[in-house]
Amino acid sequence: MNPKLGTNSRILNSFENCQHSNIMHVETNPFYPKNFLTIGDNTAKIWCEDLQESNIFTMKPSSARLTGGCWSPARISVFYTIRVDGVLEVWDFLFEQRLPVLPVKVADFPLYTLKANEKGSLLCVGAGDGSTSILKMDPRLLTANRLERSNTMEMFDRETRRERILVNRKKALKVEESQKKIYAKARHFQKQEEEEKRKRAGCPVKKAEMEYFRILEQVKEERKQFLMENILDKDKIF
């Protein structure tokens, strides 16, 4: 995401295969805009704008399909997701990535919309039956210690570097595999050309064998002729 020249707007790059189905929500981190959240199918993923090939975090899939979510305006590492079974999930990936730190049953109907106020102390949740619920967040989800932001940003950068190394490794393996295929084809064509040359020139073993028998026959004929000449000379003497 880079600012467009002459404007304050931010333009998203193209990211393919972010989720396995429709993406229900996309939102940049309010504290670190280089990273953004995508929600779809039953997983939430965190991406970095500098790395288009792979996400840097994948939360453990939920037991129900996710319909939306949002970042916490109060804490850099906290975000919320909503599900079709009426459950709101609170995630803090700095603390735990395998499970949400707090699941809350809000309604008996699917939850479709979610919005936090500017301070992050209130969440407004809309359900499929037309009802709206306003939830007050626990103070512990609103207060961050002085190291949390630096630790989270360090975590973002570390995971981005790690994923970039993995992506570059995959690219190198693909290049190596393609080169192996090219070399194999070249060897195959070279072998075919050598076989064709042998067919045109004939088998060297058979050629040597034929030459051997030809010379053998020639020697036999010379000996036979030599013997016949000797016999004729003896007859003339007698």
Score class of each variant (00 low, 15 high):
residue 151 N to H: 08
residue 152 T to P: 00
residue 155 M to V: 01
residue 156 F to H: 01
residue 156 F to C: 01
residue 156 F to S: 00
residue 157 D to K: 15
residue 158 R to W: 05
residue 158 R to E: 08
residue 160 T to M: 06
residue 160 T to F: 00
residue 164 R to P: 00
residue 165 I to H: 11
residue 167 V to S: 08
residue 168 N to L: 14
residue 169 R to N: 11
residue 170 K to I: 03
residue 173 L to H: 05
residue 173 L to R: 03
residue 174 K to D: 12
residue 174 K to S: 07
residue 174 K to F: 11
residue 175 V to G: 02
residue 177 E to R: 07
residue 177 E to T: 13
residue 179 Q to S: 13
residue 179 Q to A: 12
residue 180 K to T: 06
residue 181 K to E: 14
residue 182 I to Y: 09
residue 183 Y to R: 13
residue 185 K to P: 00
residue 185 K to H: 04
residue 186 A to E: 10
residue 187 R to D: 07
residue 187 R to P: 00
residue 187 R to F: 05
residue 188 H to F: 12
residue 188 H to I: 01
residue 190 Q to F: 07
residue 191 K to H: 10
residue 191 K to L: 05
residue 193 E to G: 00
residue 194 E to C: 09
residue 194 E to K: 14
residue 196 E to Q: 12
residue 196 E to I: 06
residue 196 E to N: 07
residue 196 E to F: 05
residue 199 K to G: 01
residue 200 R to Q: 12
residue 202 G to E: 02
residue 202 G to M: 03
residue 203 C to R: 05
residue 203 C to D: 15
residue 204 P to T: 00
residue 207 K to H: 11
residue 207 K to Y: 01
residue 208 A to R: 09
residue 208 A to Y: 00
residue 209 E to M: 06
residue 211 E to Y: 00
residue 212 Y to E: 04
residue 213 F to M: 09
residue 214 R to M: 08
residue 214 R to G: 14
residue 215 I to V: 12
residue 215 I to L: 12
residue 216 L to V: 06
residue 216 L to T: 10
residue 219 V to D: 09
residue 219 V to Y: 07
residue 222 E to M: 05
residue 222 E to F: 04
residue 223 R to M: 14
residue 224 K to F: 14
residue 225 Q to K: 10
residue 225 Q to V: 03
residue 226 F to T: 09
residue 227 L to N: 11
residue 227 L to I: 12
residue 229 E to G: 01
residue 230 N to H: 09
residue 230 N to R: 15
residue 231 I to V: 10
residue 231 I to H: 03
residue 232 L to E: 13
residue 233 D to C: 07
residue 235 D to S: 12
residue 236 K to W: 04
residue 236 K to P: 01
residue 237 I to K: 15
residue 237 I to L: 13
